[in-house]
Design a protein around this nucleic acid. Sequence first.
DNA 1: AGTTATACCCGGACGC
DNA 2: TGCGTCCGGGTATAAC
Length: 271
Amino acid sequence: MLELPELDHVRGALTNRFAGAPITGIEVTNSKTFQVNVDEWRKDIVGAVVWFIERRGKHLLFHLDNGKRLILHLTQAAYLYIGSAEDAPDKTAQVQIKFGERFVYAVGLRSESIKLLSVREVEEMFSELGADPLDKKLTLNRFIDRFAKKRSSIRQALLDTSILNAIGSAYADEILFRAGLLPDAKIPLLEKETWERLYEAMHNVLQEAISYGGAGDYPFAADDQLTGGYISKFKVYNREGEPCPTCGAAILKLEQSGRKAYYCGTCQKDK
DNA sequence: AGTTATACCCGGACGC
DNA sequence: TGCGTCCGGGTATAAC
């Protein structure tokens, strides 16, 4: 499971280790599937220095000093691992970025999830995508505006990547619980005060999760003790039948357009 | 025409 | 170990 906090967590680890370091090599397994010409890429990548690593939605962007951006889109069961040739993950890594003796392994990538773009192409790509939930430019009013024309349930909209990026099932459930809002609450019925609660809950939950190292399933390196620290902090996600930490009522599960939503039927209201 | 709902894709996980 | 099956985020397509 990778959502915003997990990606922010690994982004920080990557920046700490590799900011200012030159890339010495890159390998892409099964490059036909990924429709990537690795030999062409090497001209731009090998020898380039990584300034820093940025997260935008569920994408990680390696900023290179030659103006190129190496982009990994991490979804589903994907994860990154920092190790050596001997200390590699068990699973097939579709991408290996080499920094001397240390490699960044990307496991579980889907096709179309590796890109090497210019700055201009990056801006075009992200102009189509939703706002980053923790972007400082996403003020309360702009947050509300993004939902203005929607008539769906609030949970579906939270998962809509054209509205917000990088929130998945787990954090959608946790944010709605924190806000005291039911997953099937209808957007047109929500009032300003509810939006304020939701906006604040989104920031609090995501930032708290980042501070606990996220809820990722795999450590990003052999000495990583932090990753997954937030799994035990989930209050409703994946906890059907367990008591609500606030009121003690059993956590419920709802099927919503084929997606599972976990919530407390007592603490969460429809507006 | 714009939104919402459904179908399908495809790595990984799991069971046999 | 390998195959079939399920899962679920993302995306394309259908329905409204």
